[in-house]
């Protein structure tokens, strides 16, 4: 009797399932019911494993340096936010947040505009030689830019020095100049370009033909027809660019240096060479650095997960 109820319950739950291999009718077999339960337990375990480190770091942020170094308890002895506030103020995180925000906004615009325009040309206009360009872009996916970070940095530094001379500034790091290459670098991303290109290729071609007959220029077609139709992909790329820009630290650390535009992650990377740093400061700084992306994720999780899944299939 009990067995029967169990199998009915599982069968009901499985009745809407269209993908994967288990189906509602499988729930008649005891062995398959066992599978269903094991699978459920494994799912719970995955959630626990994924969430634990994040929960731990937030809890650890409540501890003072002595408790953190010596206590073997996961739960802190007090939940007062005073330690968090102290670290926030001492490390001046307000400014780093602002700087990261500036970086992110520029990165999002640059990622959407430049990759979007290039994808539009490669997917729709297809001028002579577009295949060569596409092949060159694809090649960059195989030889990732991290390996040429040294040359990349040398180039950026040269251009910035030249710009500093032009604007008669002494040290480009005291100005907002070094933010510009950090924004622009997000305009050259092969992965996002391909996501755009695939999306644009799926747009109905009749629209463009019609617009062209109406006398729209190529650029106008992009701004008036392609962009409004592409909101889903624009959101996805903008979010990808935002998280990437928030997370980056190698190049920002080199280019922004100790200037006033240092970002949150560049500050975290500083802990590598800072001498008077306490482990609790590191822990709290880590919390400060993961909260904004988590909020962004909470808001846009649907678009993000869809974007990832969609991009992967064809890419």
């Amino acid at each position: 009797m009990k067995n029967r109820r169990r199998s009915q319950f599982l069968a009901r739950r499985y009745s809407n399932k269209q993908d994967g291999v288990l189906r509602a009718y499988d729930m008649r077999s005891r062995g398959n019911r066992a599978w269903a339960i094991v699978i459920f337990v494994v799912c719970l375990a995955m959630i626990a494993i994924v969430l634990f480190p994040v929960i731990w770091v937030m809890l650890a942020g409540f501890k003072d340096v002595k408790e953190f170094t010596r206590s073997t308890a996961i739960i802190p002895s007090s939940f007062s936010f005073s330690e968090y506030i102290k670290t926030w103020n001492q490390l001046k995180f307000s400014r780093y947040y602002f700087n990261s925000l500036v970086l992110i906004i520029g990165a999002m615009i640059s990622a959407v505009v430049f990759n979007g325009l290039l994808a539009y040309v490669l997917a729709i206009l297809k001028p002579k030689g577009h295949k060569v360009v596409f092949a060159l872009v694809m090649a960059t996916m195989l030889i990732p830019p991290t390996t040429s970070i040294v040359a990349q940095y040398v180039n950026i530094n040269n251009v910035l020095n030249w710009a500093a001379k032009l604007f008669q500034v002494d040290n480009y790091q005291t100005t907002i100049l070094p933010m510009i290459p950090l924004w622009l670098i997000y305009g050259a991303n092969a992965f996002w370009l391909i996501l755009f290109k695939q999306f644009f290729e799926g747009l109905p071609r009749e629209y463009f033909e019609a617009a062209r007959i109406d006398g729209c220029s190529d650029l106008a077609i992009f701004t008036r027809i392609v962009l409004p139709l592409s909101k889903p992909i624009l959101v996805v790329i903008a979010i990808f660019a935002a998280t990437a820009a928030w997370s980056d630290f190698l190049l920002p650390n080199l280019v922004l240096g100790n200037g006033p535009w240092k970002t949150v992650m560049a500050r975290l990377f500083d802990f590598k060479s800072t001498i008077n740093v306490r482990p609790t400061d590191i822990v709290r700084a880590v919390v400060f650095s993961i909260v904004p992306p988590m909020i962004l994720f909470a808001i846009f999780q649907k678009q993000i997960t869809k974007g990832v899944a969609g991009g992967g299939i064809k890419g």
């Binding site: 002579k128 295949k131 060569v132 180039n155 020095n161 030249w162």
Partner: peptide, 27 residues
Amino acid sequence: KKLLSILLVVALAIGMLSACATNTSSS
């Protein structure tokens, strides 16, 4: 056509290279 477009890209790359070379000397 293909050859032409390759040439164009190469020309572009050379343009970049030389641009950077001047920067080096100015700094």
